[in-house]
Design a protein around this nucleic acid. Structure first.
Lengths: 196, 196
DNA sequence: GTCTATAAATAGATAGAC
DNA sequence: GTCTATCTATTTATAGAC
């Protein structure tokens, strides 16, 4: 593969990622991707085997990138509270990716999101490690799964809501500061529950 | 408006709701709606002012219906644990509506989801009433918002995940029973936190 | 109000020259 | 690998008869 080919391929992926995020799969045309990426229409079908394969490849890459980011946040963070707040802030800076990823996951179209592929909580293992570090080794696997799901679902859901319907609305106790306070408070009581 | 007209209009809405839920806005054609609703293609544009207005009307109706359903569950339920589990089960039976509604909310296309419209947690007020009933009158407004958001976000997020990517995958501790146990456990510690 | 017919635009994909 | 040109199919929307 030549340098020009690699460059063309990655430029298509970058542009398509943004367009899919904003307009969905059906709302994005290959022609628009080609126009904004400044490549020829035919090259999209040349480098990827059609529009769906392109979409799928972007989805997998997005999940892998997010997992890596969260893993390094988890390794560098001081404690679980801080890490979860940092993840919440991270999703603010990646709101388009986050929203597009969930829209893709929520697509019931199995041809686009193949069953069986790893689409679980990104960086989940690294977060579980922190929980173990903060609660001791005596927690059961069931406890760990419950804590991970409880904390991650809240963090993710608040990230999603904060970036769509609640973003421009004046909802009480839904400012960025209030959400972060809420994440911290929830983290504390979940960890406390695991210690008893 | 004649009886035939009312019938045609509601049949269009019912069919379109299912199609939008399954295939999204762009993935649904007016022709398909008309075909399945057994009405003429032109009548969709006659009864609604175009495809977008139809979509919008369905979105508002879905939120109102869901609010009413949750409100009656909240009024009839014995306690908060039971009500939240019941809401989780309710969303299993309405998975298409749930997914479509969130995909709509997560759409950044302002022409479809107008800013400023009430798209907050459906039945939120009724759930807050239960929390007050179970914790006493001394909880602050901030406490109530935190508890509502913590519990609702988990319930909703688990409902969403259980109906898409995790549905057919064998994820440990993610069966319907495990999720319900998790919701109950989280509810108990949140209520306990509000009582101290 | 409902129908047929059609306008006008756009889509994904590919063949074949270079 | 990239280009132009084009095929085939589908879309939303509307005009006009009934």
């Amino acid at each position: 593969m030549t340098d020009q080919s690699t460059e063309t391929k990655s430029r298509i992926m970058e542009v398509a990622r943004v367009l899919f995020a904003n307009n969905g799969f059906d709302g994005t045309s290959v022609r628009e991707i080609a126009r904004l990426a400044e490549v020829n229409v035919a090259s999209v079908n040349y480098h990827f085997a059609g529009k769906e394969k392109l979409f799928h490849e972007i989805l997998l890459k997005g999940h892998a990138d997010c997992s890596a980011d969260i893993q390094s946040m988890a390794l560098a963070g001081a404690n679980l509270e801080d890490v979860l707040v940092e993840i919440f802030r991270y999703f603010q800076t990646k709101s388009h990716d986050l929203l597009s990823h969930f829209k893709m996951m929520m697509s019931t179209d199995q041809k686009i999101v193949p069953a069986g592929e790893d689409m679980g909580p990104p960086g989940g293992k690294a977060i579980v490690e922190i929980i173990i570090k903060e609660t001791g080794k005596n927690v059961t696997e069931e406890d760990l799964h419950w804590a991970l799901k409880s904390l991650f679902s809240h963090t993710i859901h608040m990230s999603l809501m904060y970036n769509c319907c609640f973003k421009n609305n004046a909802v009480p106790y839904s400012s960025r500061e209030d959400i972060e306070k809420g994440i911290r408070r929830l983290t504390r009581i979940v960890l406390k529950e695991l210690k008893v």
